[in-house]
Write a protein that binds this DNA or RNA. Sequence first.
DNA 1: CGAGGCTAAGTTTTT
DNA 2: CTTAGCCTCG
Length: 671
Amino acid sequence: MSFPLNPAQRAAVAHDTGPALVLAGAGSGKTRVITQRMARLLEQGTPPGALYAVTFTNKAAAEMHERLVAQCGPRGKDVWISTFHALGGELLRREMPRGRRFVVYDAADTAGLLRELLRELKGDRRYDVAALQARISFAKNALGSPDALPEGGNEYDDLARWAFPRYEAALARLHALDFDDLILWPLRHLTENPDAREAWQRRIRYLLVDEFQDTNRAQLLLLKALAGDRGNVFCVGDDDQSIYGWRGADLGNVLDFTTTHFPGARVLALEQNYRSRTPILDVANAVMEGQVRAFPKRLFTDRPGGEKVTVVTAESSEGEAKFVVDAIQKLVGQGHRRREIGVLYRSNLLSRAVEEGLRLGNVPYRLIGGTSVYERREVKDLLAYLRLALHPEDEIALRRVINYPTRGVGDVTLQRLERWALAHGKMLFRAVEGAAGLSDLTPAAREGLGGFVRVVHAARDALEGGRALAAVAREVAAAVRLREDVTAAGPTAPVVARRLQNLEHLYATLERAGAKGPEESAKVLTKLSLHYADADEADGDKVTLSTLHGSKGLEFGVVFFLGCDEGILPHARTDAPRATDVTSTLDVSEERRLFYVGVTRARERLYLLRARVRGGQGKAPRATTPSRFLAALPGELLERVSYDSQAPLPPEELAARVRLFREALAKRSAG
DNA sequence: CGAGGCTAAGTTTTT
DNA sequence: CTTAGCCTCG
């Protein structure tokens, strides 16, 4: 995209000091505005270290970095660009007294912690831990206490009030921070220490924020603290693309920007869309028409022409996937680049069928969203050893691997260790270290624990001695015979292969990170907790499969938008909430914006797909209703197609299939 | 006392 | 399809 800037973009890029809010419609070149403004500031002599850009995902941060470097050369490398959470972690690391390491707990870790706490509660009913997590996180994000949760009525609100102080105390005891703490702690630190605050304000002279509509209350306050009176905050966002309300994002940050948060701020709007053909944009505008919006925008494009948006109704979810896979193979056969094709969907489940089809057809793809490699069991297990080596307080890591691979330590042994730790006021790992001297342990347990402690100590000593984290990881894995255990435990050979591959992936990542010694290693482990994405994902010419949430900021020549059915989009739970849901996150309008985000990813061609019948796993297939968002679109904007994967193929189609199949065969036997 | 196999139940979106 | 909890066997 080497268009000259339009007047609105130019004004945004030229914005000098003071707060600014740039309302940037989808595809209006917002990343370009941010990078160009940074480039401009650099050219005018601002040192790179005085700029800080904040994004929401590591992926977005990496991309922005790339674009900045492309624009203004190696100087761009020295500009700070990171996620809010990475910024928070970095600030803490720099501000904390040396040697005070902390662990970052991800959702799985905090779920384990909460499960522990709930055991205290009598009655052995099973609680929905995720529901608790959501409430606690919500309360923290809003900078409130759980007292702010509605009284009575919902038992999970009561449960959250009960758990909250215990949860916070446990984190403190474990020297652990959850994701929300990565914002809250720096905020508290800057609020309480004027010297530190001023130092950071001097250091960061220009703050730039991408996807500002997704910020929560705590993040806004952190921004304010960093910006200081100077208020050099340049926030770019689109209220129409606000899709993280469920995570505490507060649109009030946008709505009250110029009045409450940054009085007198400049407001600019980017409405020209450089991405989509007219028919696609017409659909996007139609989706939002008549909605109550904070800043009503009507996107316009100078890219007329293009084909109508196609609504495909398949007979089943399998048919839906089949249509997509066939269409992709056809496109690729016509010479389209795979990286120009995106498959989008509301929930991760929907990707399965398409994935399978692509694998069968030998079409390379990359997956965005879903469980990352670092959340995989075997990877987390190995990481737990490393965490424990750096950080003996990390009881969650300890519990995770104390009997993995199995070494004769069961519930009873663990309870005895706990009792000893409690009686002596020591942390649990001390009890484990002293297991040899505990008379009431079984010989098997004592021996198992002895071996366990030796492994952890060896890892600790190696790291303290300055060895590379990657090497230590391999040594730990070898010492506990992780490969062997994974191999023996796997239900099927392909599953085992995938798990071993995940471990290799971890080694490779750790090697690339190149960390040595305890400090660097702790930093790398924190990054991994934040699901730090690998650079290698974007490599190669691959079809992209992504959740709608993961697709923000991406664009494709052709988009296949799966699951335009009621119950999927909008998701059933927005319409019929459960007792475990945090009521304030439920909002059908957010689902509409999600639809809007999906539509606006497409440049040339958009397929909206639905299935007449959908069956859950093992559940009886049920007839579906078209998504209300689809149903509300003016008919003249759409081309409707019915797809029956069972129907006999027209002869020319059949011939094409046979050819493709032969080619695939030839390729396979060649490779 | 622990391991391993079995059943049952639950799957929105993510830093 | 996966995980967590239950139950039985060694």
